[in-house]
Amino acid sequence: MALDRKIRYGMVGGGPGAFIGAVHRSAAALDGELELVAGAFSSSPEKSRQQGEELHLDPDRVYDTYEQMAEQEAERADGIDAVSIVTPNFLHYDVASTFIEKGFHVVCDKPMTTTLEDAEDLCRQVEEQDVVFALTHNYSGYPLVKQARALVEQGRLGDLRKIVVEYPQGWLNRRLEEEGNKQAAWRTDREKAGAGALGDIGTHAEHLARYVTGLGIERMCADVGTVVEGRGIDDDATMLLRFDGGVRGLLHCSQISAGEENNLRLRVYGTDAGLDWHQEDPHRLKVLSDIHGDTPQQTYTHGRPHLDDSVQPFIRTPQGHPEGFIAAFANIYRSVARAIAAHEAGTEPEPWALDFPTVQDGAIGVHFIQTALESSERDAWVDASYTPPGA
């Protein structure tokens, strides 16, 4: 690394009973390049202190509010370098803005904000303050997702024709928000979440398709709805898409698909071949050959030396040992750690260390949500092209 020490980070959110905070902490710890030293883990000071004790943090660096944390950490010689934001969505903008203003780097869970205005403002703030900002679309951290992108870039699929991405879940098939489930309660609260299935998993699907193909959405026709009676937010969406250059697409995201777990899947079809990657079997990537040609079907598996050079830095285990969700998350955090270390040292990071979703990706995701809702409300095709500030 460019620095002779670990990257010090603090966390906002992720207190007792939270899910994603523990995932972020595990991922950040995996490579030993980041160290959690501070936190404002809950809106309840008591719960924040409880979480700090469980993590064996210095009590003086466990704060009652994130504003207090930003202020006091900025005054310390050994203060944090970055903040990890794992709160409900409606707090992302205020927390990020508070820390960016103090010159801290940011890792933020998705969706980045609940409004496009706030997302674009964060883009401008990041540029003005010259900080690193990463958004945790963690599925782009899987090695074979990166291999899929490399195959597209190499032209192995030929000219792209069709993109199909789906993310069905079934955990909200009934009103868990009425049964004391903390995660369901805030994720189905429009004021706290902003959007339901679209924001929670639809943005993952959109980013995965864009990351692998390099194509943005030009137009869309969306059907966004609430299937479970009495719920006040979207829980199912299907949309027809036109990507850059007229490439046809289909995106489906649902949290009411009974029996489904995290069945994220991407298929991309070109004039010469197709590819198929499935998150629940992430260490295999199928390359689908033209049925009229003489090339056999292929299956890439992780850990092999024939994977693209751009993939090699992200491979963690030998062949036959599957890599998983935490490791993909950790690939994001390790890249961010290297980028922050280089930034602080005034050097250039390794090229692979810049391979993480950025604040502009966050704005594109929020625009995707807004456009899908607009299309569904109008029951029509709408213009979906968008370039965020700083892109």
Rank of each mutant, 00 (worst) to 15 (best):
A40M: 11
E120I: 07
A38M: 06
M239C: 12
D235S: 03
E229W: 04
T238Q: 08
Q169D: 01
G230R: 02
G196T: 04
A22E: 10
L208Y: 00
D379K: 01
E218H: 15
R190Q: 11
G194C: 09
G230P: 13
Q147I: 01
A353H: 01
S48M: 10
A327E: 04
G362D: 02
N263P: 04
L122W: 03
H137G: 01
L157N: 02
A197I: 00
E191D: 14
A222L: 00
R25M: 08
E166F: 08
L135Q: 04
R5K: 10
H367W: 14
Q72R: 11
I369L: 12
P313C: 10
A339G: 11
D4E: 14
W277A: 08
D383C: 13
D130H: 15
E101M: 11
N138Q: 15
N173L: 07
M220E: 07
T295P: 10
A195H: 00
P322E: 15
L57P: 15
S335H: 06
Q279W: 14
L288K: 04
L36P: 00
E71Q: 15
A328C: 08
F104W: 06
A70F: 02
L275V: 09
S140T: 07
G274S: 10
H24I: 08
E120M: 02
N331F: 12
D200V: 05
L215D: 00
D159Y: 08
H306W: 04
M220I: 05
P88I: 11
D81K: 11
E117D: 15
T98F: 01
G216F: 00
R334D: 10
Y300D: 03
I201R: 06
W381F: 02
